[in-house]
Simulated assay, not measured.
Amino acid sequence: MPGTFSYARQEKLKSRKQIEALFASGRQLYTYPFKILYQTTPQNRHPALLQAGVTVSSRHFKKAVQRNRIKRLIREAYRNNKVELQQLIVGKPIGLYLFIIYVGKEMPDG
Rank of each mutant, 00 (worst) to 15 (best):
S25F: 09
T31L: 14
P47T: 06
I74P: 06
L98H: 00
Q66E: 11
T41P: 10
Q87K: 13
A24T: 14
N68H: 05
A24H: 08
T41S: 11
T41Q: 15
R45D: 07
Y32K: 14
L29D: 12
S58C: 07
F34W: 00
V65A: 12
R9Q: 10
Q18V: 15
I89E: 01
K12R: 15
I89Y: 01
E11S: 07
G91M: 06
G95D: 03
D109T: 00
Y97W: 07
S25M: 14
F5T: 06
Q86Y: 13
R16V: 06
T31H: 12
P33V: 14
E84K: 15
Y30K: 07
A8I: 13
P93S: 08
V65K: 03
R9L: 04
L29K: 05
R9E: 04
F5Q: 12
V103A: 09
G26H: 00
N81D: 11
Q39E: 07
R72H: 00
Y97G: 10
L85P: 05
P42R: 02
E20C: 12
A64D: 08
V65Q: 12
N81V: 03
L96K: 04
M107S: 01
F5G: 15
R72D: 03
E76I: 02
S58T: 13
I101W: 06
G110H: 01
N44I: 12
R79D: 02
K35W: 12
A48L: 02
A77I: 10
E20T: 15
F34N: 04
P2Q: 11
Q10V: 14
S15R: 10
F99P: 03
K92N: 04
P47M: 04
L73C: 06
L29W: 11
P108W: 00
L98S: 05
M107V: 02
G3M: 03
S25R: 14
Y38Q: 14
R59F: 15
I70H: 07
Q28D: 05
P93N: 11
T40D: 00
L85Y: 02
L50H: 04
K71H: 11
A77K: 09
F99D: 04
A77P: 11
P33T: 13
F23C: 01
Y78H: 08
A64K: 03
F5E: 08
Y97H: 15
S25E: 13
Q43T: 02
E20L: 12
G53S: 03
D109E: 10
R27D: 06
Q28S: 14
R27A: 13
Y7R: 04
R67Q: 06
N68A: 01
T40Q: 10
S57M: 05
T31M: 09
I101S: 08
N68P: 00
Y32G: 12
S6Y: 06
Y30M: 09
R16N: 05
F61W: 03
R27F: 06
Q18T: 15
L96W: 10
I36S: 08
T55V: 09
R79Y: 09
G3E: 12
G53Q: 01
T41A: 14
Q87N: 09
E76T: 02
